[in-house]
Design a binder for these strands. Structure first.
Length: 201
DNA sequence: TGAATGATTTACT
DNA sequence: GTAAATCATTCAA
């Protein structure tokens, strides 16, 4: 398993989000390795994107990683119980990131199931940003990790058929909420929300 | 110091 | 379909 080079991340955030679909997310932990194919991701482009935490150039202890060099992990906590993981992209001082929303479990499935309190084979193991972080044991300790070094990294994968839709859970962002900045694998049963009947083609 | 609020999940009605 | 869980971060005072 080889990690993607930093040049993969040092590009426009929409490009990285699009190409993140189909890549393999790997996390080596003391309990063992877990890996999954990324089937859903969203782009956040601060400071102009109202849905992004870095909107308006807000640079705080929490958002600091997004302002750093590309190829690092931006990890944050919401709703009092859920962690989310992002890939920092583009360049230093460009607070852009790609939120990983869902993966297809490939390796370490038993470990994921144990962490989630579910049985192997469950389809809701990693089909959501909070769920996959729990399954992958991504949390506070993962903040700011260099994705080019591990233990958390992305690995090449086959190019899937990618579809787009508006982002999820950011209705407060006004016009920005309508932008189709969510990317997902069209045929995958592992996405957090199936394509809407109307949006399907 | 205090109050408001989530890039969600889960359980219920 | 709706609502509760639950707390770090943020902003106002």
């Amino acid at each position: 398993m080889k990690s993607l080079p930093r040049s993969f991340y040092a590009r426009p955030v929409l490009t990285v989000a699009r190409e993140t679909i189909g890549k393999i997310l790997v996390h080596d932990t003391p309990e063992g390795r877990v890996a999954g194919r990324i089937v859903e991701a969203e782009a956040y482009r601060g400071p102009e994107d109202r849905a992004a935490h870095s909107y308006g150039g807000r640079r705080t202890a929490r958002t600091e990683a997004m302002f750093g060099p590309p190829g690092h992990a931006y990890v944050f906590f919401v709703y009092g119980m859920h962690w989310h993981v992002n890939l920092v992209t583009t360049a230093v001082d460009a607070p852009h990131a790609v939120l990983i929303r869902a993966v297809e479990p490939l390796e370490g499935v038993e470990l994921m199931a144990a962490r989630r309190g579910l049985t192997v084979g469950a389809r809701d193991l990693t089909n959501g940003p909070g769920k996959l972080c729990q399954a992958f044991a991504i949390g506070k300790a993962s903040y700011g990790l260099d994705l080019c070094k591990g233990p958390l990294f992305l690995s090449p994968g086959a190019e899937p058929r990618v579809a787009r839709s508006p982002r999820i859970g950011i209705d407060y962002a006004g016009d920005w909420a309508a932008r189709p900045w969510r990317f997902f694998e069209r045929a995958s049963p592992w996405v957090s929300r199936a394509p809407s009947p109307r949006g399907r083609r």
